[in-house]
């Protein structure tokens, strides 16, 4: 049956184009579809404030998810990203407020941001070294770092939330681009998200770095025999992801104006759901990074919808798990080879 369908799609140019579009941008179709249902079944959904909130919530997850997507492209997986967000944002909070140790003076916020970006990148470096150069399975290496990050976050904060940061960083998470012209309708963090994704999309389709990462994920051995430094590119993917996780931490810290060790919890899983819905393949080497952004927006839309539909918060976790499994199943079906 499916073969008949495939043949029909091959022969009809309109169907062919449509089939290609739906394959490439399944997430966009999903957003439209889900959005339509939500606007019909709930009152609040279509209100601009709600839509803005969805985009706001998407931005931090999406920035972190970009890192996961890059790692997925190499055929690996990073479990530590969410806890990386927690650790870096907690560290940032303590440094900014001068609470890391007794008698510490508050530090310059810009300097703090640089420090925690470096800290997040360092976690990526650890993951990359262990996976690419030492040869540990990514699953184990990043699981280890996940616990290290979470533990460190608990140690330094004593597991208590910290709130209110200097106004100078407020624009990142709570500010608006061109407030006069756009009447506070375009949050900076959404602009950041868009900017980063467009930049990454460009880098990954148009430069050696990107092409080689795709090649490594597509077939490690063939990449090696084409003279590509497989270890280096695998390493770099983890480093980039570490940086992006920390960046996501910075934005999150500013957006919530408070941090807690639960920050970024399960971001790595949301990222996988988003990436796969966005067309990135779990087996590596396949998919567009920009799709991940749409995938994340789809996921956030779904969560928002569940709240609108008054689905119990605990139940939402159950549904999230189901969505992850469905997403991966779709990926497997999509990549099923003809025997």
């Amino acid at each position: 049956m499916s073969q008949v369908g495939a043949r029909a799609a091959k022969e009809n140019p309109v169907l062919k184009a449509l089939s290609k579009f739906s394959k490439d941008f399944m997430s966009v179709l999903g957003i439209i579809f889900l959005g339509a249902i939500l606007s019909l079944t709930t009152e609040k959904f279509l209100q601009w404030d709600n839509l803005k909130l969805i985009l706001l919530q998407s931005s931090t997850v999406a920035i972190c998810a970009l890192g996961q997507a890059i790692i997925l492209l190499t055929g690996n997986f990073d479990l530590s990203l969410g806890r990386n967000v927690a650790f870096t944002s907690c560290l940032g909070a303590l440094l900014m407020k001068g609470m890391l140790y007794d008698g510490m003076a508050p530090m310059n916020p810009t300097l703090v941001i640089l420090i925690i970006l470096a800290a997040g990148t360092f976690i990526g470096v650890c993951n990359g070294l262990l996976t690419a150069y030492v040869g540990l399975p990514a699953f184990i290496a990043t699981l280890g770092l996940q616990n290290v990050c979470y533990g460190l976050a608990k140690v330094i904060t004593n597991a208590t939330p910290i709130a209110t940061f200097p106004n100078s960083i407020a624009w990142l998470g709570r500010g608006f681009a061109f407030p006069e012209i756009l009447k506070k309708n375009l949050p900076w963090c959404v602009v950041l998200m868009l900017g980063i994704y467009i930049f990454a999309q460009f880098i990954f389709t148009k430069t050696k770095l990107g092409r080689n990462i795709y090649a490594v994920g597509g077939n490690k051995e063939a990449a090696f025999f084409a003279g590509i430094n497989v270890k280096r590119y695998t390493f770099l993917a983890f480093v980039m992801a570490g940086f992006l996780a920390a960046f996501s931490g910075v934005v999150l810290m500013s957006r919530l104006n408070s941090v807690a060790i639960t920050n970024g919890q399960s971001y790595e899983f949301d990222a996988v759901i988003g990436s796969i819905i966005g067309g990135i393949s779990l087996t590596g080497g396949k998919g567009r990074l920009i799709g991940t952004m749409f995938g994340i927006i789809f996921v956030m839309l779904l969560f928002n919808g569940m709240t609108q539909w008054k689905v119990d918060a605990f139940m939402q976790d159950v549904l999230k798990g189901i969505v992850l499994v469905i997403a991966v199943t779709l990926d497997v079906l999509r990549n099923r080879k003809r025997v």
Partner: peptide, 15 residues
């Protein structure tokens, strides 16, 4: 070892 199976012909050639 020779090819990235999921890539197209031209991408493999230019690798």
């Amino acid at each position: 070892q020779g090819l990235v199976q999921i890539f197209d012909i031209k991408t493999n050639i230019c690798m």
